[in-house]
Amino acid sequence: MTIGIAMNERHDDDGIVLTEAQKRARRSRSIAIALALAVLVILFYVMTLVKGPGVLMRPI
């Protein structure tokens, strides 16, 4: 509860203020998500090339 109260007080002033450690952790997570999404895009692109024109010929 102490944490909750402390955060509510901070809400009233400046909103949630991240510490340096929290900022670093968030940045590393953001970079990891960006990399994962980039890998996914590249994977779909390369697999489309691998499958060739047949990738468009799917039963409706």
């Binding site: 944490i3 909750g4 509510n8 991240l18 968030r26």
Partner: peptide, 13 residues
């Protein structure tokens, strides 16, 4: 309830 903003690293995930 309310928790501190996450300190989880990529390693934790």
């Amino acid at each position: 309830g309310l928790a501190e903003p996450s300190l989880a690293t990529v390693g934790d995930y």
